[in-house]
């Protein structure tokens, strides 16, 4: 969402700059009764011939309403933080994606576990790691131990629990 916002702001800035400059030049030339670079008579005729109950007006208004609601929902929902506070006192943070990759590596290093993926989510003010992997369900305790050990090594806060979801590996036919 952060990247999308930045790209959208760049596009909005460019559109405002170009659109505003073109409008200003066009309006000045119209004031001076000089020929204008853009012919707006077709657009003007189309708008001045349109009535409020036309389907085109409803489509545009409905589209703007839906786009606004979608944008509002995207901006107001809770974003996953980029970093994880390691300590309340000394301002030390860990990059969340890096920690997730390290936890996935730690889980994958457990014998019998493959394709591990880890996610860190905030839950009741605490960070809760979620690990998904394929392998023997009996390896759950070992994965939890590996995750706790890696978090301790990274000086990250200790979670009260670690969610582990193990999918049994498919046997070859």
């Amino acid at each position: 969402m952060r990247t999308a916002n930045r790209v959208a702001s760049l596009l909005l800035g460019t559109a405002l700059l170009v659109g505003g400059a073109v409008t200003a030049v066009q309006a000045v030339l119209l004031t001076l009764h000089r020929p204008t670079p853009l012919d707006t008579s077709g657009w003007f005729d189309a708008v001045s011939g349109t009535r409020w109950h036309d389907p085109a007006v409803r489509t545009v208004a409905g589209g703007a309403l839906l786009l606004g609601l979608a944008l509002l929902a995207a901006q107001l929902r809770r974003w996953t933080p980029v970093r994880l506070r390691a300590d309340e006192r000394d301002g030390w943070y860990l990059h969340r994606r890096c920690v997730e990759r390290r936890l996935a590596d730690a889980a994958s290093a457990v014998p019998g576990v493959r394709r591990a993926r880890a996610r860190l989510r905030r839950h009741d003010g605490q960070w809760r790691p979620r690990v998904r992997a394929s392998g023997d369900p009996a390896a759950r305790a070992e994965i939890e131990f590996a995750v706790h050990k890696e978090l301790h090594r990274l000086t990250a806060p200790h979670p009260s629990r670690v969610d582990v979801r193990l999918l049994p590996r498919r046997r070859p036919a």
């Binding site: 952060r2 916002n5 930045r6 959208a8 702001s9 909005l12 409020w52 109950h53 036309d54 007006v57 409803r58 545009v60 208004a61 409905g62 589209g63 703007a64 309403l65 839906l66 786009l67 606004g68 609601l69 944008l71 509002l72 995207a74 901006q75 107001l76």
Partner: peptide, 28 residues
């Protein structure tokens, strides 16, 4: 990031207000 979030929240509110007003005018 907070600045972007505020900017796009304001734009979203303007779109909702404008779209709703135009739709209400269109529906009478």
């Amino acid at each position: 990031n907070a600045g972007h979030r505020l900017l796009w929240t304001i734009i979203a509110l303007l779109l909702v207000a404008g779209g709703a007003a135009a739709l209400a005018a269109s529906l009478g």
